[in-house]
Design a protein around this nucleic acid. Structure first.
Lengths: 181, 181
DNA sequence: GCCTCCATGTAATCCGTTACATGATTAA
DNA sequence: TTAATCATGTAACGGATTACATGGAGGC
């Protein structure tokens, strides 16, 4: 296997909100979800077929006008269980696509019981990561001379630290937002 | 084609610093560059062969001990031109792997003439992006009611804004750092 | 009638991960 | 002598992009 097939869960999540066609799903990646994830229709259509074969979704054929057939997909009960167990599973963020963000996107209810444990797990991870990065910086760039030797690397590492810090702050803010609700 | 084969440029960049083996290159992804990019040896070895066939790199066979042969790769003049023209080309960051960061990693000299134009291009991009995201937030979440309806989405969008803002600040700081040198 | 958008697919190709496979060197 | 590390590869598979391909609906 290559990746984790996160797209499958995105489609389940979107269909869970409302039944729609492959075309509609593809459009979502031009707006909303496209802010942090990409997918093409050529990837979506075959996947929908596979998901239907796996009984995660099903479709209803709808005729528009005289001839045009469109397939309106909806999530089966198996699909719903699959999706919700994915939401509860630990998120691995391997550098690029952030699975945590993705899961968060599908938590519509601010009072969801899932939120708090998800966030605290993520906080642990990010605190460790931040600490690791700061340690790396200390080790690799203890003085200005080293920074001048490896300038780009120092900038990138500093950026990674900034980002991790920003992430941590964002998580902390989120906890506050939930607390007051 | 699928991606942009950025790994090719990473390998060129690393080899440009010092000639080394595929094994050494693979190790880099466990430390330094691994902070923001991943690659396995099973991806690296075949790619090195292809790059050699394309005359971007060449190797010298070295015998260690009695039998062990290792291949020490180095960049050819064609490879050097390829690498430097990549450094100068516009960076597209399609959501996940950030090519700008990657390029920055290879700018060793804080006085490099490449830095300033690279940064200003990136600043334009990010200012636009930040503006776009803020506009999106205004449009989609004009009041608390909307936020409560689509809580996860609002959090994710807010995070994207935070991140873009952090990125912009980081770029601005970088300009300052360069200015004073 | 024509253009835009809706709607659905396949093919070719490349990228990337995991697993399989082998063997040499070196230091404890 | 044995374990860790060095060193290099291939195979299988799935993920993702680009291009190719077709046709209907609806508005002007």
């Amino acid at each position: 296997m290559a990746q984790k097939n996160r797209l499958k869960y995105i489609l389940l999540g979107l269909l869970n909100r409302q039944r729609q066609t492959g075309y509609d799903l593809a459009k979502s990646f031009d707006s909303d979800i496209g802010e942090f994830w990409t997918a093409n229709h050529s990837q979506i259509y075959p996947l929908l077929k596979r998901m239907e074969a796996d009984h995660l979704i099903a479709h209803e054929a709808i005729t528009v006008g005289q001839k045009l057939q469109k397939k309106q997909y909806y999530v089966t009960s198996i699909g719903q269980r699959t999706f919700s167990s994915w939401l509860k599973s630990p998120s691995d963020l391997n550098g690029s696509h952030d699975e945590f963000i993705l899961k968060l996107f599908f938590i519509d209810d601010p009072k969801s019981k899932l939120l708090r444990p998800m966030i605290t797990t993520q906080q642990q991870y990010h605190d460790e990561k931040l600490h690791h990065l700061e340690q790396q910086f200390q080790e690799k760039f203890p003085n200005q001379k080293r920074i001048d030797q490896d300038f780009g690397h120092s900038l990138v590492l500093r950026h990674a630290i900034d980002r991790a810090r920003g992430y941590s702050n964002w998580l902390a803010e989120m906890v506050q937002t939930i607390k007051t609700e």
